[in-house]
């Protein structure tokens, strides 16, 4: 018998469609780039510094935790990089470095790694990180105060904070085109609505996020805000104002759609997104916080396992034909 070659033996299937976690994460970062770059243009070098430190510290935290927990270091799938980028994009450009690395620590380690790492996080890690920072050091997220040294050519007020403080009259200080084109104060990656929409559409078309969640989230925002507005136009701002301010679009396309903490079945995805939109507006209009996006997303992350039980019956289940 001649010398035999050793062949690769494994279980079927022998083909794969070529998708990977790494490819998904790279594309999420590419999709976030327009909004992030706009933030850098608007807020200058400090914003670039924040983004870079956020991404690098998030990856460092994951690598460190992997070493401590004796698991293979998996930062090359860019999972931590995406979390870091999202954390950075939700920060004001003037955030102190120590708040930032605390934020990425909370996001990566507390928000994801202690649950078992990628795929095991019940909540969106970046949202966990920012929410805890906001509750702990709220002053650093008071955009009007922290961005006071900037000299903007547009209304130098954070739209949602202005709405909260001045009432619905504040809406007239901003034009929709300014809001969409990023001429507003806010976090580095959340001001440029058009960029976020562009990135979101890219992700939807490429199939990296589930369009059902993004669309129903936006629908939830628009419908709820419009209902409030119709019921009392003197007290509540219109739907478009809510859509293009705060973290709304970042939430709709990048945060609520995070894989592990969102449902996969069709009806649950619509419920999940819609509740997210509704809760965001409820918190903004009735609650104490100017922006409710992050808490609304944590809330829908919480109910995700429950609603994802609404699923179609598998083949042959509940059938009686034999």
């Amino acid at each position: 018998m001649a010398k035999q070659n050793k062949f690769t033996v494994s279980h079927a299937p022998f083909w794969h469609d070529g998708s990977s976690i790494k490819c998904m994460n790279i594309n999420i970062m590419i999709a976030a780039l327009p909004a992030a770059l706009f933030g850098v243009m608007q807020f200058g070098m400090p914003a670039l510094g924040v983004l870079c430190l956020a991404v690098s510290s998030a990856m460092a935290w994951e690598a460190l935790f992997n070493l401590i927990s004796r698991r293979p270091v998996a930062i090359n799938n860019y999972n931590a990089a995406v979390i870091g980028m999202m954390v950075g994009m939700m920060m004001p450009a003037t955030i102190p470095w120590w708040v930032l690395i605390t934020g990425t620590f909370i996001a990566v380690v507390v928000g994801q790694q202690i649950f078992g790492g990628i795929g095991a996080n019940p909540f969106n890690p970046a949202v966990i990180g920012i929410s805890i920072l906001m509750v702990s050091w709220g002053g650093h997220f008071d955009f009007d105060a922290v961005l006071v040294n900037y000299d903007f050519t547009f209304t130098a007020l954070t739209p949602l904070a202005a709405l909260d403080h001045q009432g619905v009259a504040a809406v007239n200080l901003f034009s929709y085109s300014d809001l969409i084109m990023g001429k507003q104060m806010g976090a580095i990656g959340s001001v440029f609505g058009a960029g976020l929409i562009l990135g979101g559409i890219y992700l939807i078309l490429r199939g990296f996020i589930r369009w059902e969640i993004a669309v129903s989230y936006i629908a939830g925002i628009v419908v709820t805000a419009a209902l409030f507005n119709i019921s009392n136009p003197d007290q509540y701002a219109g739907a478009m104002f809510h859509l293009f301010t705060g973290y709304t679009l970042l939430g709709a396309f990048f945060l609520a759609t995070e894989s592990s903490s969102s449902p996969v079945n069709l009806i649950p995805m619509f419920i999940y997104g819609a509740i997210g939109g509704i809760m965001t507006i409820l918190i903004r209009n009735i609650g104490a916080y100017p922006d409710g996006t992050l808490f609304a997303i944590l809330l829908i992350n919480l109910i995700n396992p429950l609603i994802d039980n609404i699923r179609p019956k598998a083949l042959g289940r509940g059938v009686n034909n034999a």
């Binding site: 083909w15 976690i21 078992g116 790492g117 795929g119 894989s259 969102s262 019956k313």
Partner: peptide
């Protein structure tokens, strides 16, 4: 030959949508 990994499920839902038997 495509790679096989030890990564856990990230819940992207591709399998759920393509399954002809609607298995979760």
């Amino acid at each position: 030959i495509p790679p096989i990994s030890t990564d856990p499920c990230i819940n992207c839902g591709n399998c759920v949508r393509i399954c002809p038997a609607k298995v979760p």
